[in-house]
Amino acid sequence: MTLFIVRRFIQTVIVIFIVTLLVFMIMRSMPGDPVVLFLGPDASKEQITYFTQEFGLDQPLPVQYIKWLGNILKGEFGKSIAYRQDIGPFILERLKVTLMIAIPAFIISVIVGVLLGVAAAVKRGGLVDSIITVMANLGMATPIFWLSILCVYIFSLKLGWLPVQGFTWPTDNFSLSIHKMIMPVFILSLGPLAQFARQARSAMLEVIRQDYIRTGRSKGLGEKTIIFKHALRNALIPIITLMGMQLGYMIGGSVLIEQVFVIPGMGNMLITAILNKDYQLVQSGVFMIATGVSLCNLLVDIAYGYVDPRIRIS
């Protein structure tokens, strides 16, 4: 098992390195000068030269990349051009906001989605199965940007039940924080919830046809024991794979949700940084997201080994 984890960890480090290199190259290939965008069109040549040297943009590209990567490994993220502050604490604050939305959405989507998928598989061909399948298809097909605007229009503007936008920490105002999080969390969880339901249904349908399930029933085991202790565990491999993918999506793909609800998270920050060509902030933000997603996938690979020992043996 140790060799299995080490091998996956090395692959994770390589993936993160490739992602940082690609982002560095893409940002440098974009037209425009971040210093000019920062200073404005009336900036003098002396000002442009001074700030270009201050941000290290006058050095050759390989030197800039190696220097940035070396600082990242030492925990130094540099200074943002657009926000004029240290990137490390700034990203950490934005990441906390994103996780406040992403983690509850992930937990809801996993629990509700898997339970709905199991119910649909057990009641295959019945009314429950049909309703869950139709709702899952609708959940996957509905654009979250459109759904976000629709929910704001109905629940905020028309009914006045929920705030239109913004984010409040629970420690500042718990009730207001919950009210502001309801719509973003619900909308962010909807698509993954539908995918979990479909995946759980498909995996369970394959498992409940196996001989050992019929043997368990013939021995008089209870239906709940058969479904949740034996069948669901053997159906977990594809569900765990989807869990890793969806958690990464929620952390890195919440840009639309944060834009609609004006949530000061990672997605909102990266949009502003890209528009301002804030190289350091974009690279550091993507590095944090890539590291989080890669670690999620690493944990998924390790979970494979515990769920199915044949994987770690191979």
Rank of each mutant, 00 (worst) to 15 (best):
M181H: 05
Q210N: 13
V260K: 13
I289P: 07
I66E: 03
S218C: 03
G252I: 13
G40K: 02
L270R: 09
E46F: 03
Y212I: 00
Y306A: 11
T225K: 03
D58K: 01
I302G: 08
L159M: 15
W161D: 15
I178L: 15
V122K: 15
I302S: 05
V286T: 13
W169R: 12
V152I: 14
P192V: 13
S294N: 09
I87F: 07
R198H: 08
C151R: 04
I144Q: 10
F4T: 05
R8D: 01
I149Y: 05
D42P: 00
V35L: 05
V128H: 05
M181K: 10
K158D: 12
I239L: 07
T2V: 10
G220Q: 00
T291C: 10
A290C: 09
T142S: 14
I313P: 00
I18A: 15
R312L: 08
Q47I: 11
F90P: 01
K229T: 00
M27F: 09
I226G: 03
F287G: 10
L61G: 06
K45S: 08
V255P: 09
C151Q: 02
K123W: 12
M135V: 15
Q53R: 12
G248V: 00
M181W: 02
L99A: 11
L95S: 08
T20P: 04
K45M: 12
M1W: 05
M135H: 05
V23N: 06
R28S: 11
A197T: 14
I101H: 07
V293A: 09
K79L: 13
F196V: 04
R7S: 05
R312F: 05
R233S: 02
E76D: 15
A120M: 07
I227M: 01
F167E: 00
L299K: 07
T52I: 08
L256I: 15
L281A: 07
V23E: 09
Q280E: 12
V282K: 09
L150G: 08
